[in-house]
Design a protein around this nucleic acid. Structure first.
Lengths: 222, 222
DNA sequence: ATTAAATGAATGAATGGCCATTCAGTGCCC
DNA sequence: GGGCACTGAATGGCCATTCATTCATTTAAT
């Protein structure tokens, strides 16, 4: 009776400690492996990356990786889902504070370019490895990638409802064009050694083109 | 004296036959292997493609491939150089007959999309494998790919000289945006099973966006 | 004209290296 | 002392590349 609360406390503490330790360790290892894998995949490409490279980078044993992932391919998928998920959350948060569809597109472009410029490893994984993968998965999996790109078409539809964007623009095509532009630009940033335009300059050019077009004013009929 | 012309004829015929046979065989094998490799790479990806797959597809022995190519990677490069070279020639020929920079962009878009739609194997090799590869080669090799994309910026510069395109558009960025749009669209065509917009519809949308922008008329200041 | 080397293209089975995955073992914590 | 995360050496399969051999064609010799 006297000791019961104490031992209960101990029990709770102990279980709590255990749980925390377990989770922390698990999360840390998991995260460490994901981070390491992102880096290694980006540097060597998926097929040239060795499990032992990832293990070394993450400072775990080769075998440990198989305690957290089923196989090499599974690592790639996890890298992607996790990383693009983060970006989606960030972008949506930024967009929630803006109502002008013109500004919203600019926010998307700026965010995309700055993330890709800052995190070249991630950028390379998304641009190259993801595509490899998509090809295998095709439409079988309704992936995060679609969710990401659909943010663009949602903005365009919103702008059309507000009579800001032309109704004859097909959002399904325009979203591809817009994303493709950003993707190609960040792809080139990643492979070229030269210093480049800033994120802001580039986003501004892209917005200029997509909102107003390349023709001089006043517009000739075309 | 009597027989000389005849034997000379024979000699010519024989040497001709020899040359033709030799060349035909060589060209055929080389071409057959390239064609087979394009198909196999597109279906399985570079790293999953087996030399034996290519050999089987080309109906030659595994070893034969090494009489024409140094190694697997060399095959990939050859596939690319050869195929994109063809496209460049075709596009340049089409463009030579047009002087309006607006029409020229449309021609480029239409040609690119139709080639990529028609030849899905090639499209996949270019879109995915080439990028894999570019990453390894980086700027070490001044490749055909640059030549291809620079066609776009040349058109834009031409248009700027003629005061048709806005001078504040940076051709180096715009070319990436334009190519990226086309590339992303044809990439999606390739992985999705649904029937899509036609080449003409799509090219028209792209041109609409890049020439006049997505904003409604009259343009609000932005 | 016929036969006998010689050339070299083509073959495909064998080699050898690489590496994803496994699993028997270690040590830690309860 | 047993359960657990973790380890890393060993395994086994795969596949690019090689090379001894076959086959077809040309050249040379008689």
């Amino acid at each position: 009776m006297n000791e019961w609360p104490f031992s209960a406390l101990l029990l709770i503490l102990s279980s709590l400690t255990f749980t925390l330790t377990y989770l922390m360790k698990a999360v840390n290892k998991h995260t460490k492996i994901i981070t390491a894998a992102t880096k290694v995949f980006a540097q060597k490409g998926f097929f040239n990356a060795r499990i032992s490279d990832i293990a070394k980078e993450a400072k775990v044993a080769d075998g440990t990786i198989y305690l957290y992932f089923n196989n090499k391919f599974d690592i790639l998928l996890s890298v992607f889902e996790e990383e693009i998920g983060n970006i989606i959350v960030q972008v949506k948060k930024l967009l929630a504070e803006e109502t002008d569809p013109r500004k919203m597109l600019e926010i998307f472009a700026t965010k995309h370019l700055s993330v890709m410029k800052k995190n070249k490893n991630l950028a390379e994984v998304i641009q190259i490895e993801l595509r490899q993968t998509n090809k295998l998965i095709k439409d079988y999996r309704n992936n995060k990638f679609s969710e990401y790109v659909n943010i663009i078409s949602d903005i365009i539809k919103l702008g059309q409802e507000q009579n800001i964007y032309r109704p004859d623009i097909l959002p399904g095509i325009a979203k591809r064009a817009f994303f493709g532009s950003l993707d190609e630009i960040s792809r080139v940033w990643n492979i070229s050694l030269e210093t480049n335009y800033t994120v802001e300059e580039t986003a501004s050019q892209i917005i200029k083109i997509f909102l107003s077009g390349m023709l001089v004013q006043p517009k000739p009929a075309y």
